[in-house]
Every structure is written in C-alpha cells, then in structure tokens.
C-alpha cells in the first residue's frame, strides 16, 4: 500500500502516528516535507541543526509543562544558557550535563544512535569526587564574579568556603596527594 504525502502529494516515505486526546492521528509525508517538519534529520544533518531542532522542541515542551521555563535558566556554574548552546553546539562546563539534563538526554540519545549511558573506561579517581568538584567549581566561579563586581565581603566569605573544602582558592598545578587531601569523610576512595 503506497501513501501520498499529505503536504505535497509526492510518494510518502514517513508515516507518523500520534495519539491526541485518545484519538489516533496518522500522517504521511515525503522525505522532504518530513524534514521540514522536523520529523527526520537530513542524511548528513549538521550537528548544529540537530541541536537546534532538539533544544527548540524540548524548550517548547518544557515551557508548556512548567511555569518557570528551564530553557531560559542558565547553568549555575558557568552561566551558559541552552540558547547559547544551541548556537555554538558547545556546552560551557561539565556541570551543564547536570543543569540541562532534561534537554540534553534526548539530544544525546539521538546523536549517539540511541545510546543513553556510558560503557567503558572509568577514571580511577572519579566517582565521589565529581559532586565535590562541581561544588568547588561553582564556588570559584562565584568568587571570581564577586571580585569582578567588587563585592569584597561576599568574596571573602566565598574564599573561606573554598578553603574549608581543603582545596586551593585558585586551582593549581600541585595536585594534592589523594591520600591526604581526601581522608575518609569526603567520600573519595582509593581505587
């Protein structure tokens, strides 16, 4: 059985079935119209196009679902927004993967041929250090901003918070000995 494209009458190759309010809606589209409607990616759709499509559709869906649009909310660590990511195709910092998890998960799944989870090498020192590093990175970024804004009291308080973690205020090349720097209670364990 061959269908014709609902939009232009050419032979249809894409058949979309959606359920709206309990009612099944079928659409038949040719490759070209389906691409325009964002149902399929072009054969060599550039990554940026893919990002635009996904971030935009996600953004729209999220807007309907929640009052505060997560699309406009920047990553608290690096300050980048989804709109900026959409433009450059690049995330701002490792924490973006957490900040934009909802938007990124379907995009990554699409880019990575359906894969959703890492399989393979794990750094020996990773694990519990990840959260800790995000926290320190956030503090450092806030400190940087406070100094830029000449908010010295806030800067002093942030500096003290960083010192309390046992990490240097500015990241340095002298990596602390993991045995000493991370005794039992911050959760980092030897491999």
């Amino acid at each position: 059985m061959s269908h014709q494209c609902d939009r232009c009458g050419k032979p249809a190759t894409v058949h979309e079935v959606t359920v709206h309010a309990g009612e099944k809606v079928e659409r038949n589209l040719c490759q070209e119209c389906a691409r325009e409607e964002g149902l399929v990616a072009g054969p060599h759709a550039p990554i940026n196009e893919l990002i635009t499509k996904f971030v935009m559709s996600h953004g729209a869906a999220a807007k309907k679902q929640s009052a505060q649009s997560p699309r406009a909310k920047p990553c608290p660590v690096c300050g980048i927004t989804l709109a900026q990511f959409k433009q450059s195709g690049l995330l701002g910092c490792p924490s973006c993967y957490t900040s934009f998890a909802d938007a990124l998960a379907p995009l990554i799944e699409r880019m990575q041929q359906g894969a959703t989870h890492h399989s393979g090498k794990t750094p020996r020192r990773a694990g519990a250090t990840v959260d800790r590093h995000e926290r320190i990175a956030l503090l450092r970024r806030q400190l940087h901003d406070a100094i830029q804004a000449e908010q010295y009291e806030r800067a002093a308080s942030l500096r003290d918070q960083i010192i309390q973690t046992g990490e240097p205020v500015a990241p340095s090349s002298d990596t602390p000995d993991p045995q000493n720097a991370c005794g039992g209670d911050d959760g980092r364990e030897a491999p």
């Binding site: 490792p94 993967y97 990124l104 989870h117 090498k121 794990t122 694990g127």
Partner: peptide, 15 residues
C-alpha cells in the same frame, strides 16, 4: 581529576 559522570562518561564540550 577529569570531568566524568557515571551516566555520560567523560564529559566533553560537544555532546
């Protein structure tokens, strides 16, 4: 320490 997440693995600027 490299940026790493148990779910997404090594974290990179481009997904």
């Amino acid at each position: 320490d490299f940026a790493f997440s148990p779910r997404f693995g090594y974290l990179t600027a481009c997904p």
